[in-house]
């Protein structure tokens, strides 16, 4: 158990340091952004015909990690792009952007989905859980230290999706077999090939969750 403390502390420090890679990159490219950014702006559309929205921007409300969050999107904006590009919720990654790799996995009404292949407008009123919810409490959700302890990542691009797919699996199947873990993560790809570590981490997290009895609500808020 003592080996778990170190990664926990590192994660905590990273979360509270205020450093954001995205903030750094944003500052570094501010000049380029000022030139290019205007092209992406579109005026919000005035009163659409009855029942029809868009094609310009419309305001919708997404329920993200329990919080009602208004956001302006075009109908074509995916859930992933709404979160990453409009709301700066960047934990989920945009990797294949074609509903295959799983790096954008999040939970919608308790079930894993590919956020790159869902329209944001279609998600209004649904309960969206992102990886940010796993670090909301005093301690991260047990899946997080389990991934660190089992070296369950190399480059890290697949990790947020793998972690959320694991959360989705453990919410439904709290005591999975190795084969159930393998099948349950069947929608997520890791090009570094860290699958064995990931599966061990999920089994370990399941054990920890059962021990603490904090299975359903993320554990970290208890």
């Amino acid at each position: 158990m003592s080996s778990k403390k170190k990664p926990d502390q590192e994660l905590q420090a990273a979360r509270t340091s205020g450093f954001s890679r995205r903030g750094f990159l944003g500052t570094a490219s501010a000049t380029a952004g000022a030139v290019g950014g205007g092209l992406l702006e579109r005026p919000a559309q005035a009163a659409p015909p009855a029942g029809i929205m868009g094609p310009g921007e419309i305001e919708i409300t997404l329920t993200i990690n329990g919080k009602a969050t208004p956001v302006k999107v075009e109908p074509r904006t995916t859930l992933l792009d709404a979160l990453r590009e409009r709301l700066e919720i960047t934990g989920a990654k945009r990797v294949c952007d074609r509903g295959t790799c799983g790096a954008c996995t999040m939970l919608v009404n308790g079930k894993t989905v590919y956020a790159c292949t869902a329209l944001a407008v279609d998600m209004a009123g649904k309960k969206i859980e992102t990886i940010e919810s796993l670090s909301a409490g005093a301690r991260p959700h047990p899946i997080v230290p389990a991934f660190a302890n089992h070296d369950a990542q190399q480059c890290g691009y697949c990790t947020p999706g793998m972690v959320m797919a694991s959360k989705g699996l453990l919410d439904q199947t709290p005591n999975p077999t190795y084969d159930q873990v393998k099948a349950g993560l069947g929608g997520n790809l890791c090009r570094c090939g860290t699958y064995v570590g990931i599966r061990k981490a999920v089994l370990d997290a399941a054990k920890e969750l059962r021990a603490t009895g904090a299975r359903k609500n993320g554990g970290s808020n208890a």
Binding site: I52, G54, P55, V121
Partner: peptide, 17 residues
């Protein structure tokens, strides 16, 4: 490409779209 979007509640509305 951009597109209009509708989420009808009935089949009849959907046919009209």
């Amino acid at each position: 490409h951009s597109f209009e979007y509708a989420s009808p509640a009935t089949l009849k509305e959907a046919f009209g779209l």
